[in-house]
Design a protein around this nucleic acid. Structure first.
Lengths: 211, 211
DNA sequence: TAGATTGTTAATCGATTAACAATC
DNA sequence: TAGATTGTTAATCGATTAACAATC
């Protein structure tokens, strides 16, 4: 169960398992088999079993896996029960969308506040507060924030990133499509919409060529 | 250069190469070596060379790769010169953010219009038009749209997806965090923010444990 | 017992890296 | 020629799949 030994691919599958396990109707009984899950998600059944073995202490031959147990195990493996506080810089449309998105709590992240250079965007009335970016460091220190989300335009991303690092932030979720340079020990995860989009377009191209 | 033989990982690296190649200052000369690119992006130099070999017709021993040629080659490989038209359903904050995002054109996608059930969100005045979702099929047929983007809440995603398939759409970019069921021949790409976020949180956890 | 299902060990496959050859 | 760099072939590594054993 060493975190470093968990592959990216597995980490991507776990939330999908979770979603599926939760969506299964109650009348299907308390148990669920790896084959059922596999075919529902289009995966190999051995893979599903191996994945489950990594995060839980196993199913029951002949009956399958106890669904609610599996859900708890996956959630605790992913740490969905203890939340991580985060801040977001760049309260434009994308930033606002992420600030307001209620689903993140379910994934164990609590966005405490947004920040923006544009004072016009700052407000504290309803929903999550948005403060001037000048307050970022003080806020992070005060609340012990270790995670930052960058939703500013590409040109400003590096500056914002530097500010976050200065404020003690350790992991950064970067939605700007630029490569960020950070000191050692800081992790940047790029939300690479360009790559995603490109992949999808390649599929489309492949499909058109087939016809 | 068969599209099907291109790995997901390569497709994710190509936009990064592009970004880096474009960002290199002019005074660094016309040529660039695989080792330079590799160290800038934290990749192996052999990997970079192999990647370049797949998309362009090669560099020059001793001098390196001609930068502008490489840029053109990657862009044409990714099809950034001919754009794909798309529609978006769900004009909430995330939807609006994606509708308004100017960067997509650079990646070869042109979002023609948004759609929403909520008439209140519909408008055609400024920016991209947003129409009632009832017009989706007609619009897609009329403009030969093959790509759809889903930015509605999870509960409505499957219904929207079905509507898109009925409208002749072949590839779907899904931002709702549910697994969509589609007929054969339709490709769904899930923008899995949950997985991304989870991965980042695991990094943070690993880091805290190290200390 | 027979059968369904989990769990494990070995084989395959693909991507990355290492070592070396080719080129200008 | 010597040296820098690309290009290629072989080795490694990790993830997935296949085959089989274990269990209830």
């Amino acid at each position: 169960m060493e975190i470093n030994k968990v592959s990216k691919a597995l980490l991507a599958r776990l939330p999908r398992y979770l979603e599926h396990l939760k969506a299964v109707p109650m009348e299907n009984g308390d148990y669920i088999s790896s084959a059922t899950v596999a075919s529902a998600l289009g995966l190999g059944h051995v893979l599903v079993r191996k994945d489950f073995a990594k995060v839980s202490d196993g199913g029951h031959p002949k009956t399958g896996y106890l669904r609610r147990e599996l859900i708890v195990d996956i959630e605790s493996f992913l740490g969905y029960n203890n939340t991580t506080d985060a801040v977001l810089v760049g309260a434009g449309r994308l930033g606002q969308a992420l600030l307001d998105y209620p689903g993140f709590e379910g994934y164990g992240m609590n966005v405490r506040a947004g920040f923006d250079v544009n004072e016009y965007l700052c407000h504290t009335a309803e929903g999550k507060p948005v403060y001037p970016v000048s307050e970022l460091e003080r806020f992070c220190r005060e609340h012990g924030i270790l995670m930052g989300i960058i939703t500013v335009p590409a040109e400003q991303a590096q500056k914002v990133c530097d500010g976050m690092v200065a404020a003690g932030i350790k992991v950064i979720w970067n939605f700007a499509s630029v490569h960020l340079t950070v000191p050692g020990g800081i992790v940047v995860q790029n939300e690479n919409l360009a790559a995603s989009l490109t992949e999808l377009r390649m599929h489309l191209r492949a499909q058109l060529h087939e016809i």
